[in-house]
Amino acid sequence: MTVPPRPGPGTGPELDPDGTGFGNDADPLDFVAAVGASWHWAFGSALITLIAGVLILAWPDETLHVLAVVIGLYLLLSGMFRFVAAFAGRAHGERFARLLPAVLFVVAGVLCLRNPLQTVAALSLIVGLIWLASGMLTLYTAIAFKGLPHRGLVVAAGALGVAAGIVVLALPTESAVVLTRLLGLWLVLLGLMELAVAFALRSVTVAGGRPR
């Protein structure tokens, strides 16, 4: 789950006087932080999750190889989105809590893509552990750091990630078809929750007078 940044006046790098972009002396990290703080970035991350779930549900009879590739691409792309969004965190501890799941997603995605011909048990273990760890870190971020917009939605997204991880790890998946339907369903649910968080972030940024 992508944790929304804490919007507020005076955050992010300044634009050029003509409003066309960042100044030549802008800090690259400030630029990355501004991108990660945008609700559009959270929306893009949510779309990655939702599209992966729809693709998996649309191809329930495909091979385990195809499933592993789709899951690997989802984890890799989602990890990249999370990595950029992590720089929007103000506090050092908050940024670390966001960077850790991003790194886990990227590593898990590389593992899936490097060896797509793995067993159903191995694939479910990778995804289950990633969702569980990411959900727990999202819950920690929502509880530990003040000022997060729509904290209730963030807590719900974290709880859903924890539930998804537990379900995938606890239920036996003896066939690729069972795993496909299970992962596809959870990805759609997680994607819809992340979309809700993105639109909630949009309402906060628009209300705060920040550019859309």
Rank of each mutant, 00 (worst) to 15 (best):
F81R: 07
A85L: 09
I51F: 06
G12K: 05
N115F: 12
L179V: 01
E94W: 02
P17A: 13
L132R: 00
H92T: 11
M193S: 11
T205D: 05
P7W: 04
P101Y: 07
L73I: 13
P17Q: 12
G10S: 04
K146V: 10
Q118W: 05
D30V: 03
T180K: 05
L179K: 00
L139H: 01
A133T: 08
A68E: 00
L190Y: 00
E62Y: 14
T2P: 12
A122G: 13
V32L: 15
S203R: 15
V167I: 14
R181A: 10
G19C: 06
V110C: 01
E62F: 14
V167C: 10
L50D: 08
E194R: 06
L132A: 09
L137H: 03
A91E: 15
L182S: 10
S203V: 06
A34D: 13
N115M: 11
R202I: 02
F145C: 03
E94F: 07
P211S: 14
F22E: 09
V106G: 10
L160G: 05
G89C: 02
P17E: 13
S124A: 15
E62R: 15
G10W: 03
G165D: 04
V32Q: 08
V35N: 12
L182V: 06
H150V: 10
L182C: 07
E174C: 04
G79N: 12
A121R: 15
F22V: 10
S203F: 09
A85H: 07
F83W: 13
P149I: 05
V35Q: 13
W131A: 09
F81E: 13
G152Y: 04
V162D: 03
L113T: 00
V66M: 11
V154Q: 03
R98E: 15
G128V: 06
L75Y: 01
L189N: 03
P172G: 12
W59S: 14
A102L: 06
L100Q: 00
G135Y: 00
V35Y: 12
L76T: 09
G79T: 10
V120L: 14
P60E: 11
R151E: 13
P60F: 06
A170Q: 10
A144C: 03
L153P: 03
M136H: 08
L169S: 07
D61F: 09
A170S: 11
G128H: 06
A46I: 03
V69Q: 04
A196P: 10
L100P: 00
L104I: 14
S124E: 10
A26R: 03
P9F: 04
L137Q: 03
V154D: 04
P28Y: 02
L50W: 05
W131G: 02
V3A: 12
E14H: 12
L50Y: 05
A33Y: 02
F31A: 15
G184K: 02
L76H: 02
